[in-house]
Design a protein around this nucleic acid. Structure first.
Lengths: 340, 340
DNA sequence: TATTAGCACTCGATAAAAGAGAGTGCTAAC
DNA sequence: GTTAGCACTCTCTTTTATCGAGTGCTAATA
């Protein structure tokens, strides 16, 4: 059996209606609500065909049809139109970013919130691991005798700081010297290339300021470790509460608990995502736990590193809108990155 | 009518059972389950008295009794025993803090998570506004020509940083000079005392490095603004899903949406909380939106500033455990503060 | 040959009725 | 003051009846 135009139309209408109402769609609805120029009986025949093709399913004999995962897949592959975010909305966001953010991380948070508000799905942004970037600069300064702060800056402009305790006898100049030494050795190295052996070498060179150096090394080490992981920003998790498929508290609980779990999203999104939005529908998802959800994602590039941005929602998702929004935001993030 | 010992016992047992089961408690349960040495009929008489006193209520004529808000209040005021966290658990937390935290904020996050895990309620910690503390130190350094980072340190050990753009011609030494100037003027001032007039004065003094100074001032200003607000850490919000009173998604949604709202907790907790746990039950709460919840809170002091810590849960709360936990954590926070 | 009107049938959803059971309040006896 | 006994109340669960949306099939129609 072949898909002809009428079958496509009916599939599209069923998806549209189902996405809107979350209810099975009957033949009458198609004819009346969408003013299709054939009778209900004809539509029923087509629906039976679509079911045979695996694109629709019936919850029970006398219910209307709902799109199957395969049905959504067909729609996404052959019929979907992406709806980009309009300029007005982008301007709103740009405005927020310009007036309210000073840091890259803060900006990411706002963007994520914006994306989830716009779509009413759960949005996420995965930040490329700091570890892939280059060591740009470090600095140590004395707060008071015995206490100092270590700063680490990557070329991406990420700044981290950590307080350390040093010997009471250590002076500002000592710390400066240490910092300069560090900078000389590490400058422009990939942070991930800095091995413990380097650190050991350094440790040997300066005997005198032993404690201070140890502590500085420790703090660097911990910052590196800390930043080795990709960070994930998620927002709008509570939007899931609005979806009728999760109106049962236990189901909702499963979903929200899962989303809260650290690293779940990192693992859910394929590595090396493209600029084009990728879509995973229900059981297509990598993770078993996500078989009741749909995922729309894309990758953004910052220098040589790839970050991810995307949306999570029910299988009954507005894929066109979601994909369009994700792609728009993906582009916007790349622009923002250049600024920071 | 007076409260005698038997009435107290029965009230306590009803509360205990109701907290445990979330079901109305009948006279038989009291007699059988808790091996009280009187007959069910006697208990019924006492229950009728307790109802007359307003400490119990009945959902309908033939249901068991549940404690009223007034009943919980009586219990809390006259009968509750606080259950502190045991040392073993405290050790677990201490361990986490020592091995996994480097920053005050990080520590607060862990503590809050610990508190919510321990009690299965929603925990929060309100950080005293940075603005109340003293300006300790600032530093500026050059990242690359035209770009610099400004650091601000308070005596509480809070460190903030912000990137700024300066003129290409500005050298490291210039920035140092500016920083020293700032430090001289502001050292040990209450951050909230730093007025724009001070900033203006400074601006006038150094004409040459105009742009750099402007930018540094701007960044300081924005950091100060940023930190003027109290920060709130909340964790375990999803614990609400476990409470039978919120098994209805709409109710749950109302609660979670409210909790997510920025500043709600800040406003919910009375100012100047004591070391002793304070308790607000249902409609005793300041905020109308919280009339279905109970709040247990205490204040911790850091130097001259007061922070807040507490728990939110259903009215049917284990008040003894909650109050004990909050007070233990309150103390622990004060200890931790001293370290940082 | 494709389309459609007509109709019996299915099955979930809602409503109404019946029954069970937990718990009470009251009375009278201890 | 306490308690056994008992009628009564009211929710909750189960059962039964009814409704109606939607289907699939058949036969008529264009």
């Amino acid at each position: 059996m072949q898909m002809d135009d009428r079958k496509k139309l009916i599939l599209a209408l069923i998806i549209k209606d189902y996405v809107e109402t979350a209810e099975p769609v009957g033949s009458r609805v198609i004819v009346k609500k969408y003013a299709v120029n054939v009778s209900a009986a004809t539509v029923r025949n087509e629906m039976a065909d679509l079911e045979e093709l695996g694109l629709l399913e019936q919850l029970h004999t006398s219910s209307g049809r709902i799109p199957s995962e395969k049905g959504f897949r067909y729609y996404v592959d052959y019929m979907m139109e992406k709806k980009s975010i309009n300029d007005e909305e982008i301007n709103v966001l740009q405005n927020i970013l310009q007036t309210q953010t000073y840091e890259w991380l803060q900006a990411v948070e706002k963007i994520s919130a914006f994306l989830s508000n716009l779509t009413n799905y759960v949005s996420f942004i995965v930040l490329p691991s700091f570890a892939l970037n280059e060591f740009e600069h470090m600095e140590i300064f004395l707060l008071e005798p015995g206490k100092a702060v270590v700063f680490l800056v990557s070329d991406m402009g990420l700044v981290m700081h950590r307080k350390i305790e040093v010997g009471e006898s250590i002076s500002s100049e000592d710390l400066n010297e240490i910092a300069q030494m560090f900078n000389k050795i590490f400058h422009r190295k990939q942070i991930s290339d800095i091995r413990r052996s380097d650190l050991q070498e350094l440790r040997d060179r300066l005997k005198k300021k032993r404690k201070a150096i140890e502590k500085a090394l420790e703090s660097l080490d911990s910052m590196l470790n800390d930043s080795q992981e990709e960070k994930v920003m998620m927002s709008g998790a509570l939007n899931m509460m609005n979806e009728p498929e999760f109106k049962d508290v236990d189901k909702l609980k499963r979903i929200l608990t899962m989303l809260e779990k650290d690293g779940i999203i990192k693992n859910a999104v394929p590595t090396n995502p493209d600029k084009e939005a990728g879509i995973m529908i229900g059981s297509e998802n990598i993770l078993e736990d996500m078989k009741d959800l749909a995922l729309v994602y894309a990758g953004y590039r910052t220098k040589n590193v790839i970050g991810k941005v995307g949306l999570l929602g029910p299988i009954r998702m507005e894929y066109g809108k979601a994909a369009g929004a994700v792609e728009s935001i993906r582009e916007l993030i790349e622009d923002i990155v250049k600024k920071f």
